[in-house]
């Protein structure tokens, strides 16, 4: 197989003018304020409890940008595909009754150009009995960027953390392709897939205003895009998700190490006291 990789989209992205021009999903502006960072909200401890903000639980409407003419589907954890109809370019995610990740997929063909956009959304419901790894393994579009792995409870995308993905064309990994990461905070970086089609981005530390506390900093959108040419056809794909501020900004490892050492010091005091007592008893007996 012979693949031709182009970098046109890179130039467009790096120029800054046409960033986020490719077809992609993003949360509805009302909830997410589009691709811009939300103003951090301070939560009062006395505030009425809200839903857990863990694994993409909030479900605003989803917008499909640059997606005119695209067919959109929602793939359930069990692989069942549900067609979705847009309402003025906006999609309300229907309740499927199943828990865990679902894949929102848009695909359109214009002449020799095949575009796809994917976003994984987590819904509430009964346990599906299916692992998200089945959903990621399933071919959802001709050309797709697949998280490896998707975030889960206690493991989110955060700034400064490595996020790993796989690039697949017709469910086969693509080696040596250039991929681009763009964040709503204005960072654009690129990398190249390895022989297994894998690539990793260190999510940028590009939050301008950081308030100490996980719930006090709203997540921000990032998008990964790739392009490949094969058999005279051009394939474009995008994957969008959100990432959080790295808690290391208010959690000090050095401080933790110091307190742990203090605990060890106190423990060693008792340890040597025990040792001396036991030695004395040993001598007496």
């Amino acid at each position: 197989m012979k693949y031709f990789f182009t970098i046109g989209i890179t130039l467009a992205l790096l120029s800054g003018n046409s960033a986020f021009a490719a077809m992609h999903f993003q949360p509805e502006a009302k909830q997410r304020q589009g691709m811009t960072q939300q103003a951090p909200k301070a939560h009062s401890p006395k505030e009425k409890p809200k839903k857990h903000s863990g694994m993409q639980r909030k479900k605003p409407g989803i917008l499909l940008m640059e997606g005119t003419g695209a067919s959109v589907t929602l793939i359930r954890p069990d692989g069942v595909i549900l067609p979705l109809e847009p309402n003025e370019g906006k999609f309300a995610i229907p309740k499927t009754g199943l828990d865990n990740y679902h894949a929102l997929v848009a695909e359109k063909t214009t002449g020799n150009v095949i575009e796809s956009a994917i976003r994984y959304v987590s819904l509430r419901g009964k346990p599906s009995g299916h692992s998200p790894s089945e959903l990621t393994a399933q071919q959802k579009a001709s050309f797709e960027i697949v998280p490896a792995p998707l975030p889960r409870e206690h493991w989110h995308y955060t700034s400064g953390k490595n996020a790993v993905f796989t690039l697949r064309l017709l469910n086969e990994p693509i080696a040596g392709a250039m991929v681009f990461l763009t964040t709503a905070n204005g960072t654009t970086v690129d990398t190249i897939t390895d022989s297994n089609g894998k690539f990793a981005f260190q999510l940028p530390e590009d939050f301008e205003k950081i308030i100490p506390g996980r719930r006090k900093n709203a997540p921000v959108e990032f998008r990964i895009e790739a392009e490949v040419e094969k058999d005279g056809k051009q394939y474009f794909s995008s994957l969008s998700d959100k990432y959080y501020v790295n808690p290391n900004h208010w959690q000090s490892f050095q401080g933790g190490l110091l307190v742990m050492a203090l605990g060890m010091g106190v423990g060693l005091f008792f340890t040597f006291k025990n040792h001396k007592t036991a030695s004395r008893k040993g001598k007496k007996s």
Binding site: M260, G263, M264, G265, V266, G267
Partner: peptide
Amino acid sequence: SVMADFLFGLIIAIGLT
């Protein structure tokens, strides 16, 4: 967090005897 770190260090050292 201080309680957790201190307890962890304490257990490591006290666990020796």
